[in-house]
């Protein structure tokens, strides 16, 4: 599974997309993220499964759908 790694330096900072890891489990993804992207003393690091990342589409609303 592909996981996206997000980090931030300080509480309140914007989250940075640090990169991705391939992992067979959430537990492995956490370790791989730490081992691969721990070059700074992050305030926060998290991983998100790619399949859980939902795309937000901008689709035209049909005029007939608007009452």
């Amino acid at each position: 599974m592909k996981y996206h790694v997000f980090t931030r330096n300080r509480s309140g900072d914007d989250m940075i997309h640090a990169g991705t890891v391939q992992a067979d489990s959430d537990r492995l993804a956490r370790i791989y993220a730490h081992r691969t992207y721990d070059e700074e003393d992050w305030d926060f690091m998290g991983v998100v499964r790619e399949e859980d990342l939902l795309e937000v589409n901008e689709e035209p609303i049909s005029s007939r759908g608007v009452a």
Binding site: S25, R27, L28, R35
Partner: peptide, 10 residues
């Protein structure tokens, strides 16, 4: 140890 255990689980 966390890496080993997570790997051994899979």
């Amino acid at each position: 140890l966390e890496h080993h255990d997570a790997r051994l689980e899979t």
